[in-house]
Amino acid sequence: MTDPLKPWDGEQVRIWLERRFEASRLDQAAADRRGHEARDDYDKAAAEEWVCRALRHGDCTQEQAAFAGRLKELIGQDEYPATSIHDDIRFERHVRSHLRKLAKMTKVNEGFGKTLHYQ
């Protein structure tokens, strides 16, 4: 059984964010090469990159409560400015989806050890 009181590891969260950032960049490049039919994949990868970029720098990863607060702040934003995306509405929907996923991971403090490219 897993230990439900596992301590928060800010370094592991930063590593996870860095790896997801790099994976999203690779996913964007792959979708861009596939062309028009991969626009949704491109926007989804761009949204993940935006989320990781917004969270990976700064001190918010040091403590679980600070990270959760930053996520709540980002979820509450009205818009997420980005360039070179195909559909603003779809992009914002994907950003919110990634933020909610991270909020759930933060709440239960699980999933940050999974650093493989595909999740």
Rank of each mutant, 00 (worst) to 15 (best):
Q62H: 12
R34C: 11
R25H: 06
R56H: 00
R39I: 06
L74D: 02
V13W: 11
A54V: 01
E73M: 06
A29S: 15
L55H: 01
R19W: 13
P7G: 03
D78P: 01
G35T: 12
S84W: 08
H57Q: 11
A23I: 02
I85L: 14
A38D: 15
A82N: 07
H36Q: 10
V13R: 09
R25Y: 09
A82K: 11
E63M: 04
A31W: 04
S84N: 15
R20A: 13
W50I: 01
A47P: 03
F67H: 10
A46T: 06
T83N: 04
R34S: 11
I75F: 01
A45Y: 05
A29H: 11
L71Q: 02
E37I: 14
D59P: 00
D43A: 11
L74K: 03
Q62S: 09
V51K: 04
G69K: 05
R70S: 00
R39V: 06
I75Y: 00
E22K: 05
I85S: 05
E73K: 09
D43K: 03
R70N: 03
T83Q: 12
R39N: 12
T61Q: 08
A68N: 01
I85K: 04
L71E: 03
E63V: 09
E63P: 00
Q77W: 06
W8T: 10
E79A: 13
E22L: 09
S24A: 15
G10W: 03
R25Q: 08
D9H: 10
K44Y: 12
L17R: 09
A46K: 01
R19E: 10
D78G: 13
E63Q: 14
W8D: 07
L26P: 00
Q77L: 14
E79F: 13
A30I: 12
A29T: 10
E73D: 09
Q64K: 14
L17Q: 07
A29N: 09
L26W: 13
W16F: 15
D43H: 05
G35C: 14
R39L: 13
Y42V: 07
G76Y: 05
Q12C: 12
D41N: 14
R34D: 14
R25A: 07
Y42C: 07
E11H: 05
D40P: 00
H86C: 09
I85R: 06
E49W: 00
